[in-house]
Amino acid sequence: MESLVSVEGVSFRFGHHQVLNDIVLSIYSGDFLGILGPNGSGKTTLLKIILGLLKPSQGRVLLMQKSQHDFTEWGKIGYVPQNATHIDPYFPVSVQEVVAMGIKSLAPSERVAKAGEAQAIQEALKHVGMESHRTRRIGQLSGGQQQRVFIARAIVNRPRILFLDEPTTGVDAQTQEQFYDMLARINQDEKITIVLVTHEIGIINKHITKVACLNQSLIYHGSHGEFCSSQAFKELLEGGHHLVSHRH
């Protein structure tokens, strides 16, 4: 399988605080990877380093076999940040405009024809079930609906890999369930690799295929099945994290 992301010996310090220590991790095409760990374990920092938003103190990241410096095909990467729904409710931007940001802000070399863009926006909204809301202002939608719109923006370029950082914070359990079902469909039907950062190990349990468990260092990286019987999993549970059991 093709490696889409290679994290090679990445460490990160913030002042005197060691946030990440010598992380080695590969993400392969087709994975539905959950990056798990308690609060403050460095999950979001790792994600930001992978996306080039933070520079590592040591080590490097390869994106699709290229160094971040040489990587230009940003349309192949989708990202939904933490607290994406904490937006200014009066920001005058329609659902359609939010999704268009993802496709129309690409470098000219990556952009497709205008007609293709309109169709891609339409299809992305359809994938997340928001096509009937396209003219509404984003601030008028519920948190769950806004999150779907941000997914649409992240997949509008048909990326190879989609990163989501704590995407269901503040969303009710039923909406969370529907949300992760939707992500699983995107992973399986659209063949988009998904990397999900979360501290909630329960609700995502039925979908993820691989786990990277983090607590400053990488304490587990492997299949989801083996993770459930691993010491890392027990430690995570002992730390007060709850498992919601689902049938596979």
Binding site: L51, G52, L53, T72, W74, G75, I77, Y79, V80, P81, A84, I87, F91, V93, E97, V98, A100, M101, G102, K104, S105, L106, A107, F150, R153, A154, F163
Partner: peptide, 19 residues
């Protein structure tokens, strides 16, 4: 217009999209 709007609305996502 579009990259300006993107970075005004969601700076972090704009950066992660190569803007």
């Amino acid at each position: 217009y579009h990259p300006f709007m993107f970075l005004t609305f969601d700076r972090e996502s704009a950066m992660a999209s190569g803007v």
